[in-house]
Simulated scan of single mutants.
Amino acid sequence: MKQFLIQILRISSFSIFSVFLFECNNSKTSEYAHAEISDSLRLIPVSSGKIFESHPEFAQGHASTIVAVNPGEYLIAWFGGTHEKHDDVSIWMSRGDGKTWETPQKVAKIRNDPHWNPVLFNAPDGKLHLYFKVGKEIDDWETWVQTSEDKGKTWSEPKELVPGDRGGRGPVRNHILILSDGTWLAPASNEKNKVWNAFLDRSMDGGKTWEATPFLELDRTLIPEEGVIQPTAWESSPGNVHLLMRSSGGKIARSDSKDYGKTWSPIYLTDLPNNNSAIEVAHLGREKIALIYNPVSGNWGDRNPINLAISLDNGKSWKIDQIIEKGDDPETEFSYPSIILDGEHLVLTYTWNRQKVAFWKFKIEGLDSAK
């Protein structure tokens, strides 16, 4: 623990590291300390900061997505404008190494309607995909996609993912998952008349065509009010695929598939709290996963603090559940995270008070030997 604190102090120029340091000395982090002592599983902060401080063309930035385009080099996209739902909201992007970032550039604006929820995806053929939504209201938005063959420096003309669709196909907010049989699995959801449902969009031909599953079975007495949206997926072994979902039931919801995402178990609730805000998982191999989320219960609860958790048993228990950032102001918002595994590093972004996009990079130590 001493060496861990010394390392944080060395990089104390990052203001949010002071929050992390405070939490490591707080009794709330006893699980973290126990994990470090018992099996050497540790998260070591490498870098952090904001992608931008301000920009003359947008007052708000929200719903970021991240991919690695080279070792240690990242591309981040988000939607930005005057305010969510305003007609000037576009898709913006920046490239950097975690310490320095290029000036944000507008990369998508189909028409004078709000743009939403970009999702970046590295395809196996090396082509980079950018998916995003367009529409006045979520009920009737469309999914668009554009591609890049030079790691995001230039982009093709955008096209509708499923021409004529209204309601949203393809990835709704979280990364696409490539299954062991080559299937592309896009975690998806639908929001019609304040009734929310989750489904999966599957592609067997490298994203050219898509087939949607039925909505996942949901007991609305178990999860009242809106329902579930914005799934995040991982495959623990060939064909065994799992989802965690944002829910209005006060806890993170889950469903599982044993046939490569063709059929799914009825949705059930986990023990993890959820405030009806977005979450995402990064797969660390087999049954090991990392989760970024707000550890807050209650429908439309506070989006503060934001935590990073690691499970070694497919989400049954959590060896680490560590506060990343916590604000004192009741209006504080840390939300809509994106997370990836880049070699031995966890790299993540999230909305910071609707004004900026925060970035963190952690080295994972002891993962292979952790039990």
Rank of each mutant, 00 (worst) to 15 (best):
T221P: 02
L41P: 06
P71R: 12
W141I: 11
S277H: 03
N112D: 15
A188I: 03
N122W: 04
R166W: 02
Q3C: 02
P158N: 04
L367I: 09
W234D: 12
G327P: 06
N314S: 14
E333D: 11
A123F: 04
P273Y: 08
K316S: 13
L41A: 08
W184H: 04
S335L: 03
N197T: 12
H283Q: 10
T147Y: 07
K194Q: 14
P45V: 08
E365H: 07
G315Q: 00
K319Y: 07
E280C: 02
G207N: 06
S40V: 00
G207E: 06
A59Y: 10
T209M: 09
I6E: 15
F215W: 12
V241D: 10
G301E: 09
E149A: 11
E235F: 05
A63M: 07
F215P: 01
A282Y: 00
D328N: 11
I6N: 13
R42D: 12
K356A: 13
V228A: 08
L43C: 00
P214L: 10
E325N: 09
P238K: 05
V69D: 01
I6K: 12
S317C: 05
R111F: 04
D256L: 03
P224W: 12
G261K: 07
F121V: 10
K194A: 14
N274I: 03
D271P: 01
K288A: 14
A282S: 10
K85T: 14
K208Y: 07
A278M: 03
K151I: 06
P187E: 11
A186E: 12
N26Q: 13
P171K: 04
G80Q: 03
L367G: 10
K192P: 00
R202C: 06
A63I: 09
K319N: 14
K258R: 10
H115F: 03
I267L: 11
L218W: 12
D256N: 11
D205E: 08
W116N: 06
E287F: 07
L41C: 04
F359I: 07
D181R: 01
I176G: 03
G343V: 02
E137T: 13
L244F: 15
N190D: 10
G250P: 06
S236W: 05
I320G: 04
Q355R: 15
I37A: 10
G366A: 13
I110Q: 11
I66Y: 00
P330D: 10
S148V: 09
S54D: 15
V172K: 05
W300L: 14
S48A: 15
R202T: 04
W352N: 07
L312V: 09
S248Q: 04
A212F: 02
K363W: 09
A358D: 00
F215S: 13
F17S: 01
L243Y: 12
L128N: 05
S15Q: 13
F199D: 11
R42P: 01
W141R: 10
T103E: 15
